[in-house]
Simulated scan of single mutants.
Amino acid sequence: MRIAQITYSTKPRGGVVHTLALAEALARRGHEVTVWTLGRGGDQAFFRPVDPAVQVRVVPFEAREDETVGERIERSIQTMSAAFQEAFRSERGPAFDVVHAQDCISANAVVAAGARCVRTIHHLDEFTTPGLVECHRLAISEPVARLCVSQAVAHEVGEAYRLEPTVIPNGVDAARFARAASPAGTPARNAWRDRLGPYVLALGGIEPRKGSIDLLEAFARLRRGHPDLSLVFGGGETLFDYRPYRARFEERAAELGIEPVILGTLDDDDVPPLVAAASALGMVSTKEGFGLAAMEALAAGVPVVARDLPVTREVFGDCVRYAHDVPSIAAALASAVDGRSGADAAAGRALAERHSWDGAAAAHERFYEHVLREGGDGGAAVDLADRHPVGAR
């Protein structure tokens, strides 16, 4: 199949990581795969090298300081759509058999270009601006078929839109994070520990959905008994404007006497040893689609504290420690850091190993075949269990 995978950014957000890993796995299965993205801020390539078997098309997108988030999203859609109109169709017919949009922006751009697409809904966002609400709605209702990476999100889509997406869980490069935790990864891990000392890690930046202030408050309690610990935030590239939330975070940190280490966007090779060197990973998001960072931590044998949500229960079972508010997050982190009874590290590693990208690609292939044969999913989940399980290698 000729497959276009489309994402809105070159930066290491979860959906972008998903797009690249899925594209590479599909290429290994013999498909012709092209990944499309916007080159924000002059970017001409993704945050990491991409398998040469995958073609990459970066659509230039100039930065503008004087526009709102809504204006930036609208311009993103228009810019992508113009590129698609030129490339997706020719006198010989459609350029791709399958066009797969991985986010709201790319789905709207494909629809605006007059093409049919599959959409992965990683999670449902909550907007109040009418234009963004409509953008979000169209990106779910207009594609010919829909996927989710967890049943919990598929249920939310069903409740809100009366549609039943097909569920294909994320994969994870478990071997890469396991290597970082192995004896061979000791120098890189030690480099982070020498720099940071013992630390609790959070990935994904400082933003409301990540529950960053809750984690800060919990860490303040944790540090009373663990004064040598640091709180470290990695990543955080985002399209949205979280400056007011970031200001509240910084104000509260000063009141608590905590100086979090803010690493920002990381080189891709730095992420596995940073994760493997952590005393614990805190993923206390108020909303998640899957929790890829937590799965990567489990692959490295690092204990995870997750907010108790339907999606985290579904994906992680008994392999993480759960919490629901600041006191319980602090208590769960203390348990994780102290190595007291709780989640089984071996079970966590085994869970991560079962989520392969090759298995996810095989399931996507079967889904695409159904969509091509039937013209879409008809608003109902597609049965993919008749051949191989999603986790099969």
Rank of each mutant, 00 (worst) to 15 (best):
S9A: 15
P12N: 13
R13V: 14
R13L: 13
V17G: 05
T19Y: 04
L22K: 01
A23Q: 02
H31C: 03
T37K: 01
L38H: 00
D43H: 02
Q44C: 08
P52H: 07
E62C: 06
E62D: 15
T68P: 11
V69S: 10
V69R: 09
E74V: 14
R75A: 12
S76K: 01
F84T: 01
E86R: 14
R89L: 10
E91F: 08
G93K: 02
D103L: 12
D103N: 14
S106Y: 02
N108E: 10
V111R: 03
G114N: 15
A115H: 04
H122M: 08
L124R: 04
D125N: 09
P130Y: 08
V133Q: 14
E134N: 11
H136T: 11
I140Q: 03
S141A: 13
C148E: 02
A154L: 03
T166N: 04
I168W: 00
A180C: 04
S182E: 05
P183C: 06
A184Q: 07
A184N: 04
R189K: 05
D194P: 02
L196I: 10
P198R: 13
V200M: 04
A202W: 00
A202Q: 09
A202P: 02
G211T: 09
I213Y: 00
I213M: 03
L215C: 09
L216F: 12
L216E: 07
L231H: 06
F233I: 13
G235T: 05
G236K: 00
E251T: 15
A253N: 12
E255S: 15
I262N: 08
G264P: 04
P273Q: 08
A278R: 01
A278D: 08
V284F: 08
V284R: 02
S285K: 01
E288Y: 02
A293M: 11
E296A: 09
E296F: 11
A297D: 05
L298N: 02
R307Q: 12
D308K: 12
P310W: 01
R313N: 10
V320E: 01
R321A: 14
R321K: 08
R321N: 06
H324T: 12
A331G: 11
V337E: 06
G339K: 07
G339V: 08
H355D: 07
A362D: 07
E369L: 09
G375M: 09
G378Y: 12
V382T: 06
